[in-house]
Design a protein around this nucleic acid. Structure first.
Lengths: 367, 367
DNA sequence: CTGAAAGCGCTTACAG
DNA sequence: CTGAAAGCGCTTACAG
């Protein structure tokens, strides 16, 4: 493959001049520039970004390390990050850790060796201190700017972060159910390993506490993060089990979309009516949730905004404008989109639990 | 940041030796190796992959250029690619063109400049000759090995490719509906820009032709690739329109998941029963499709296998084992998963179109 | 405006 | 086993 010297030779000039026309760094006479451009064409020359990076000590590459891509929020998140990064003239190096802390660390080390200019990290649910130490060392070495995106962790402290408002989303969902008069709200939670998961549980509890209530412990159940049939089956079994309680729930707050399918299946088998017998709210929205026979109330997230803001924050730091500004944690609002699976209950209360309602309510509450 | 010379100095040896312990390329005495390792620790040294790449002329990086990530098949595809690539010691550079040929070309040029060892390309729906020329030049320059993945194109010829069996998937779906006695099968197609889209239409037509039938032209409608509410609304409007025909369809083959929501919405409004009045088959499967009140028959794809095989093929070429072997086109089979939305019709035929069926059939036909 | 040369941080014969 | 040196392909003062 041709290099810059070949081009210089063919254009009868020096490599410095070729470099100048390549980067518009120095003025070059039109005639010479034309000769150079022609030589580039002729030789099918593609300047080596590798050599350029070695020389400039910048790779124009952003790394993104995240645990999963098979979640509903991952694709729009990645899409937004990629868009921002590309528009700023950077490339995106993607690494998926599958939630394995060991892999997470290896991937971060690799990103460091590849000398990415910035690193976007979505902390896996099993994020540990060893990983945090590594991040701190990386950050301290001063070569790579780091921002938590979508999933942060308490360690390291002093790291920029952009995440969804999980707590208020769960708080709004739970408050909504309480407002509707539900008294026994089951929580189908995700293993509380990460901050996101814990914040959803916290929101559920705060909504109760605010009214001087304490949710019954037996109503809190653990689901699975798995997007596969296992996740569905577990939610189904758990729901069945909830209705063997002496005092079964009159509402269920489900912490992810996959589990909703299992819950609905179980409720169908038990011939329980939504929302007549049980109100339902889901964390995270999707088109199909609103096109079900009984549209499901959902906490809608904006993973695209999370990605966009995280990328912009990182890029902003990289430009050096805010090099040493104090770390910033941005919380992207979530929205409660109220649909029949919960709202129908208000009407039913008036009508003394008439037949399955058909009218569709769709209001939006912003946090 | 410390470099290899700093390490050599601290360990009181030469850079060649440090390099040797870093790469296990040459035997080094245990004592010296320990000194080197200690110096590396001490200096928090991360060898520069950039410098290494310049020297070795290999970046251990694979590029992936694809149009969309917001489709149901993209995430499992990317996941599999990333996994294979990572396990082979490579990194993944991801670029999303959004289907814009201009961007597609810029991204490919950038990948070339970054000197990726291999390139996985998912041809956008608007793939044009200019892009094909560029690919050919890239391939000819001999630095980057290229494989079409998930979406190929007729040009350039002689390129490795791994794609889903769109044609047979559509063929199986249509044949299944014809076998059930459907005579007027509407096709809700996607704009026929890419090979994938055209193959689905082709499969629909071949199934008819095999029986000496020719589908009525007014039953073929164009939907949208959009995953947004627009895509749903268009499918909804189109479905309504289909039932203003003098002779409306008794089955609909829908070419993607998003459109199914619009179709179901329209059928609901028209108070048409699935599968009693209209049988329904969807290209591409999803968990929620089988948990709907009437589970939907679907052509199930294996985007993960497509990604895995494409990555492996590329990696295999890179290892040089099959450097110059003739190009290979792998077609990954699709499966028809038969559910109530079509299978129910067989039973109804027997029962003289009784009330909505409730039994669930789930068989699998392999192509 | 243009050109010769040092330097970015590695690897890899090559000589000892 | 170990060390000095050239080379990978750029950029960037620096001198003309």
């Amino acid at each position: 493959m041709a290099n810059i010297r070949d081009v210089a030779r063919l254009a009868q000039t020096s490599v410095a001049t070729v470099s100048a026309v390549l980067n518009n760094s120095d003025p070059v006479s039109p005639a010479l520039r034309a000769r150079v451009l022609h030589a580039i064409q002729e030789l099918n020359y593609h300047p080596s970004a590798v050599a350029r990076s070695l020389s400039t000590r910048k790779t124009c590459t952003i790394g993104l390390v995240m645990p999963y891509i098979l979640t509903p929020t991952a694709p729009p998140f990645i899409r937004a990050v990629e868009e921002e990064v590309t528009n700023a003239g950077y490339s995106l190096l993607l690494a998926l850790s599958d939630g394995d802390p060991q892999r997470e660390r290896e991937m971060m080390e690799l990103m460091a060796q590849k000398r990415v200019d910035g690193l976007l990290i979505s902390a896996g649910p099993s994020w540990d201190d060893k990983t945090a130490d590594q991040i701190e060392a990386l950050q301290a070495s001063g070569t790579t700017r780091i921002v938590f995106a979508a999933r942060r962790s308490e360690r390291p402290k002093n790291l920029d972060a952009v995440v969804s408002d999980n707590r208020n989303g769960a708080f709004a969902a739970t408050s909504h159910l309480l407002d509707l008069g539900c008294t026994d709200i089951a929580l189908l939670a995700l293993p509380a390993l990460g901050l996101n998961e814990r914040d959803r549980i916290l929101g559920y509890e705060l909504a109760h506490r605010e009214r001087g209530l304490i949710p019954r412990p037996e109503l809190r159940r653990w689901g699975s993060t798995s997007q596969s049939p296992d996740g569905i089956a577990l939610a189904q079994a758990t729901t069945r089990d909830l209705f063997t309680l002496e005092r079964p729930p009159d509402a269920i707050f489900v912490c992810n979309q996959t589990m909703v399918l299992g819950v609905l299946q179980a409720l169908g088998e038990l011939r329980l009516d939504v929302p007549g017998d049980v109100a339902l709210v889901c964390f995270d929205d999707a088109p199909w949730l609103q096109h079900l026979p009984v549209p499901i109330t959902a906490v809608s997230q904006r993973p695209d905004l999370v990605g966009r803001k995280a990328a912009r924050l990182l890029l902003h730091r990289l430009r050096g404008d805010a090099e040493a500004a104090p770390p910033r944690v941005e919380i992207v609002p979530t929205e409660l989109v109220i649909r029949e699976s919960s709202a129908g209950r208000a009407r039913l209360a008036g009508a003394g639990r008439a037949a399955t309602a058909t009218a569709r309510a769709e209001q939006v509450l912003e946090n």
